[in-house]
């Protein structure tokens, strides 16, 4: 599963720390999410999507959708 977190964050000029504060996780978690080393739980994915005002599917891309 890939995601557009870094792209969306930079487009809105939000820092990783601000995003981490916004969804109540550590900055390290945001870094790991953006680099693809960690997959968010459903709850965290929902929080991140809600933070950006988008749906989960618009933020997180499942493998079959990218091929």
């Amino acid at each position: 599963m890939t995601n557009r977190i870094a792209e969306l964050r930079k487009a809105r000029k939000i820092s990783q720390a601000e995003l981490a504060d916004g969804v109540d996780v550590t900055r390290q978690t945001i870094i790991s999410l953006e680099s693809g080393r960690y997959n968010a739980s459903l709850l965290l994915a929902h929080k991140i999507a809600k933070y950006f005002g988008l749906t989960i599917e618009e933020v997180f891309l499942f493998e079959e959708e990218t091929t």
């Binding site: 109540d24 996780v25 550590t26 390290q28 978690t29 790991s32 960690y38 968010a40 739980s41 709850l43 965290l44």
Partner: peptide, 14 residues
Amino acid sequence: REAEREKRDERSRM
């Protein structure tokens, strides 16, 4: 607050 968040953080728990 950061330390508490570190404990709650799902990646840390994982």
